Computed example of a mutant assay.
Amino acid sequence: MPVPPPAQPVFRFAPSPNGLLHLGHALSAIINHDMAGAMGGRFLLRIEDIDRTRCRPEFEAAIFEDLAWLGLIWEQPVRRQSDHLDLYAAALERLRTMGLVYPSVMTRGEIKTAVAAHEASGQAWPRDPDGTPLYPGRERELTASEQADLVAGGCPHAWRLDVAKAVGRLAEPLLWRETGAGPAGETGPIAADPRAWGDVVLSRSDAPSSYHLSVVVDDALQGITHVVRGRDLYHATSIHRLLQRLLDLPEPVYHHHRLILGPDGRKLSKSNGDTGIAAFRVAGRSPAELRAMIVEAA
């Protein structure tokens, strides 16, 4: 799905409406908004709401309210991933016809048991950059007919990318241009290492598309030229670059910014109940005060 290059820089902020935005989200939104303004570019807002079990309308409304209070202005209409599931399905089907995906049926408990048994022998099980054990990939070795039978049997399954096979198709080194900084201050041309992630999920029975697949499709179709996001997603760029190459999608510039950490040194999280932007507004803080707080905390 080749997309013509845009006439000007295009940035986006893409939150999920599964909780209230916190200071870390405010930092990312402000950086995107301000970089777009400084470069004479466009600033888009995208709602990543594929997970229908956790995403709620009230959280989406809160996102709009919080960003408007911060003084940010974005283009209309806002893109919602839930409106474009057919596009992600088409991208998955393209990878399937290339023979690069396979159905996986192992549960988290089965994976945990397999990893524990392996490590009990004294050998470490490989883990991805986030520390999660790589998927065993047993179904990868099945024939196409056996994989089809697995799916036809009605067993809950996910579709995973055969990363090693996909990397083997590449004719040129896989790189990305980094204008921010990685965990160790890396910048400039960065060598991607998608193998470090193992066979990532692209779709599940309860979710029609994974973050990895939908984000590269959306960025391409929206003409995003600059992906500006937190350093916690730095390593995921390797998988995104691989998917872009496989699907003939344009390559954006990447800029990974610093994170705001809590008192205990961990990054802020919705699931941990970290204070939302709305709480500062209700407490009488001004957008200018919040900006100053972000600069101090980051």
Results as ranks from 00 to 15, higher is better:
116 A>G: 04
51 D>K: 00
51 D>T: 02
63 I>K: 01
109 G>R: 10
107 T>F: 04
72 L>M: 12
72 L>T: 08
106 M>K: 10
95 L>M: 10
81 Q>L: 07
74 W>F: 06
85 L>Q: 13
82 S>C: 14
64 F>T: 01
72 L>R: 02
84 H>Y: 11
76 Q>H: 08
93 E>F: 10
92 L>K: 09
76 Q>L: 10
107 T>H: 07
79 R>P: 01
57 P>F: 02
111 I>E: 05
75 E>V: 08
114 A>Y: 02
56 R>K: 15
108 R>Q: 13
86 D>W: 00
71 G>N: 12
81 Q>S: 11
70 L>F: 09
74 W>I: 06
67 L>S: 05
82 S>A: 15
88 Y>A: 09
106 M>D: 12
83 D>A: 14
105 V>A: 11
84 H>N: 12
89 A>L: 14
77 P>L: 00
79 R>V: 12
70 L>Y: 08
78 V>W: 00
82 S>R: 12
73 I>P: 00
97 T>R: 15
86 D>A: 13
64 F>G: 03
103 P>T: 11
51 D>P: 00
57 P>L: 02
57 P>E: 07
67 L>E: 05
103 P>K: 06
58 E>Y: 04
82 S>T: 15
54 R>D: 04
113 T>G: 05
87 L>P: 01
67 L>C: 03
86 D>T: 07
68 A>Y: 00
89 A>M: 06
68 A>N: 05
54 R>H: 01
103 P>R: 10
97 T>F: 09
90 A>D: 15
104 S>V: 05
94 R>C: 12
93 E>I: 09
60 E>K: 01
59 F>K: 02
68 A>R: 14
75 E>N: 03
108 R>T: 08
98 M>F: 08
61 A>Q: 11
99 G>T: 02
108 R>Y: 06
115 V>H: 05
93 E>N: 15
89 A>N: 10
64 F>M: 03
108 R>A: 09
114 A>V: 07
75 E>G: 14
111 I>P: 03
87 L>K: 14
92 L>Y: 04
